[in-house]
Every structure is written in C-alpha cells, then in structure tokens.
Design a protein around this nucleic acid. Structure first.
Lengths: 153, 153
DNA sequence: GTCAATGCAAAATCTTTGCATTTTT
DNA sequence: AAAAATGCAAAGATTTTGCATTGAC
C-alpha cells in the first residue's frame, strides 16, 4: 500500500499543484500522530520545530487542501476547537469514519471502529428514503478508568 | 406537562436568577422553531423583530445559560456554524438527543429518532468498559428528493 | 521563465468581557 | 434598595485574504 505521503504527492501532481516542503511536513505531522486530534495551532507548532519559518496561513491553507482531498477529517469534539486527524479509509472504499468516545472524566478521546450502524442506515433508508453516504458518531461518557473511579466514591 | 417557558422560569428562580424579557424572548424564539437549527446571529435577528433593543451579547449569554440548564442543545452540523435547538428530552429521562440527517444535495437537515444505538452502546460497554451517557449522530447523504434527482441524471 | 505557493500583516468572523446603566425582585 | 442583567463598545480568538516575494516545475 502506498503511504499517505505518496498518495498526497500523486494527487497534487494530478491536479497541477506543487509538492512543497510545507505541504509534506504538515501531512507528516498528522501522519505521525494518527490518533491525536490536532488543532490548526497545534499542527503549526509541531511543524515549526522542523521548519521554523512556516506561516500559520500555510497551515490553514494546507489543512483545507487535505480535507478536500479526503486525506484528513475535520472533527468537532465538542470542546469548541476544530480538530483534524488522518483519515483511515481504504482508498475507493466507502469512507467510514470511526467513532469517537469522549470521556467526560479525563477528557481523553478514544476511537472505536464498528459497522453496527449499518442496521440503522438501512432503517433510515427504508423509512425515510434518505440515502446515507457517510456518518459521524460521538459518544459521551466515562472511560474504563474514570468509570471505576466514580464507582469507588 | 409544563411547557419549556415555565420550566425555564422555574429554573431561573431556583437559582436566584432573574426572569427578564430578553431571556424569555430568546427561549420563545427557539421554542417556536423546534426543528430549525439556529445560529446565535439568527436568534438575534428573530428576537430583534420583537425587541429591537436587544444586544447580541445578551443572546450569547442567554444561549450559554440555556445550554447549561439543558434546555437547548448545541449542534455542529459541519457547515462551520455553531447552532442551537430546543432539547426534546423528557425531564429526568436520559437525554437522548435525536440524530441528524444532513442532505449533501439541498443542505436540509432532517431529524431522526431511534434507539438502535443501544446495541452499539452495549457493545462498547462490554468490549472497552466505556460507560456511555449520551451520544450524537450525524449522517451525511441524500434526502428522498435529492436521491431521486440524482438517479434521473 | 512561468505559475503556483508562501509568509506576512491586515481584515473578517465569531464570541467573550468590562463597565456604566437599567431592570427585576 | 440590593443584586443581577443588559447594551454597548472594546478585546480576544480563530480563520481568511491580499500582495510582494520565493520556490517548484
């Protein structure tokens, strides 16, 4: 499988866009942290360690580009920040974003893969004629540790 | 059942807060449009028709208050705007937010009630020990009309 | 060399805050 | 009369944009 970086470079060339250090650095920053959910500012800080001259505007522009190319997903975990993460979909396959479990105790965000939503999607299709293409699920609650902590008290 | 407005007034009094025209007007604006998903600015414009002197800051402050009291839900439908809607939960009952179906064709947002997620929640509980308290589901796709339109072409 | 991308600073959005004044209780 | 809420304008925060310069092809 070609890694995301190669895929990105390919897509750029296909579109007549240029493969710049900044663009590659930004994708790399995200790629190295697959389960982090980074804000634009955080990405900026990370890339700055390697390339101190990069501008925040470039980060925003590249993020937008990556989202359009479906290489990253835009997230809203309810804390008021817009976050991004590397997409985990297999190329042509229907983009099935994973689900997020947000712990109300420690604030950690876990991810969860599962296609149990297919049943739900089918029901929606039948009853409402709505054709589902993609979905996003957030569950709020308490992670194992925090749940245990709460029971003790 | 006491309507939302009375409930709001009660809660305000319980907390030693004051029942002002502005607060009631804002709740009313939301209550009269149960399935709209309004932005702060839109709420401001609506209330301004009745009470032209209201300030945007008051709208923001009241929205925050209503959200804290669980009378309204904060939504993020992926269009970059923060939106609000009247909650539909029955008092003490577990808050079960309804799901949103977002049409990629016409942009309309439909709502969908269903507890098919219970299965998913149970599975998460078993496999990961994560205790789910609340959830939020967004489905992206094409509504009946837009799906038909797309098949024709 | 050409055209796109970058960095910077300024502008545009959206939301919050401080404070004098008004309103509720 | 006391305390809280309001409106306004200013300040914050986040994201976008214009433009001269730089870099990829």
């Amino acid at each position: 499988m070609p890694d995301k970086k190669d895929r990105f470079k390919m897509l750029l060339k296909e579109k007549g866009l240029k493969v710049t250090t900044q663009r590659v650095d930004i994708l790399e920053a995200l790629e190295l942290r697959p389960d982090k959910h980074l804000t634009a500012e955080e990405i900026y800080e990370i890339v700055r360690e390697k390339n101190p001259d990069i501008g925040l505007a470039t980060v925003y522009r590249t993020i937008q580009l990556l989202a359009e190319l479906n290489l990253i997903d835009k997230l809203n975990l309810g804390d008021g920040f817009v976050r991004y993460e590397i997409g985990n979909m297999d190329e042509e396959k229907k983009a099935h974003h994973h689900h997020h479990l947000i712990c109300l105790g420690c604030g950690n965000v876990l991810t969860f893969q599962g296609d149990l939503l297919d049943t739900l999607e089918n029901q929606i299709q039948k009853t409402m004629g709505f054709e589902v293409v993609d979905h996003e699920v957030k569950m709020y609650g308490y992670c194992k540790d925090c749940a245990a902590e709460r029971k003790k008290e």
